[in-house]
């Protein structure tokens, strides 16, 4: 990836953070910490990695992207909006509002480009396995990508899905886990330890790559590496929840709350400053 490419993506990422915080503040409801930390991933997905067409969301040979941890949807919505699926302003103004297309958790029938509904943790990853399997049956070449989270990994269903995909060498499936170490009740290792996480995936016959989840180059390179492996790949994204808003960074109490309007006024200049520095 060229330096120019990276710069472009970085700029988009700041804009996404700004617009997402505005939407969350308008909604006065929703999740801040996780979504702020995963912005680079979604920007990489919708601007670099996915073979897709925002103007033709049902493109038959598109890559499939499944968000398993549905509460991350503001980050997905904002990146999709910036990539051309729907108007950014509509997202900012109507996220989580009455009769919106931008449901509190993503719904396949509410918005174009959403492959499936999620929210109840653990369900998406199994569906990703099903979609990857369908591609195999139909001898299609598109890839299936899925984002899961560390808290979500406490659900048994996640491991049932991983066991199946690993056991059956489902190599057209690449999953990513947002390893941000937080969930609602605290830090993941205090709530229920997940480590050694990478070893668990390996034991399930997954190829594992660990990257800095805020580094576009590392995310895209790992994604390319996965394409050449004859097993499913899990890319562990090490991220900072709340990234680039100092007050939110690494603080699990921000898991499920939006900024107030006053807090928004405080946070936006921080992000504007980063934008100028690029």
């Amino acid at each position: 990836m060229s330096d120019l490419d990276t710069l472009k993506l970085k700029k988009i990422a700041v804009d996404c953070r700004i617009d997402m915080l505005k939407a969350l503040a308008n909604a006065q409801s929703g999740h801040s910490a996780g979504p702020l930390g995963i912005i680079e991933f979604f920007v990489a997905m919708y601007f670099k990695i996915l073979h897709h067409d925002p103007k033709n969301p049902l493109l038959p040979d598109r890559d499939r992207f499944i968000l398993s941890a549905g509460h991350y949807c503001p980050a997905m919505y904002v990146a999709m909006a910036h990539s051309g699926y729907f108007p950014v302003q509509e997202f900012i103004k109507t996220l989580r509002q009455f009769e919106t297309r931008f449901q509190g958790h993503p719904h396949n029938l509410a918005l174009p480009g959403i492959e499936t509904t999620s929210g109840p943790l653990g369900q998406g990853i199994s569906q990703a396995v099903g979609m990857a399997l369908a591609a195999k049956i139909d001898k299609k070449n598109h890839r299936v990508y899925c984002l899961t989270t560390d808290g979500e990994s406490q659900e048994g269903q996640v491991w049932e899905a991983l066991m199946w995909a690993g056991g059956k060498n489902l190599d057209n499936l690449t999953a990513y886990i947002d390893r941000n170490f937080i969930q609602i009740d605290g830090n993941t290792e205090d709530v229920l330890p997940l480590e050694p996480l990478a070893d668990k995936y390996r034991a399930f016959n997954w190829h594992v790559i660990e990257v800095d989840g805020h580094n576009f180059q590392q995310i895209t390179e790992a994604t390319d590496e996965a394409k050449a492996v004859h097993r499913p790949t899990m890319i562990i994204l090490h991220t900072i929840p709340g990234k680039d808003v100092k007050e939110i960074e690494n603080d699990y109490t921000w898991h499920g709350r939006p900024p107030t309007h006053d807090e928004l006024k405080k946070f936006l200049p921080e992000l504007e400053k980063i934008k100028k520095s690029l």
């Binding site: 943790l121 808290g151 979500e152 406490q154 659900e155 969930q183 609602i184 009740d185 709530v191 229920l192």
Partner: peptide, 29 residues
């Protein structure tokens, strides 16, 4: 509780009786 101790209001019990409170993690089954 499954990672929803505050919102289900079980936190009142958990604070008073930490030894009788079991944080299961996100695993309802």
């Amino acid at each position: 509780c499954c990672d929803l101790t505050g919102s289900t209001k079980m936190d009142l019990f958990a604070k008073e009786f930490p030894e009788r409170f079991i944080e299961v993690g996100i695993a309802e089954q």
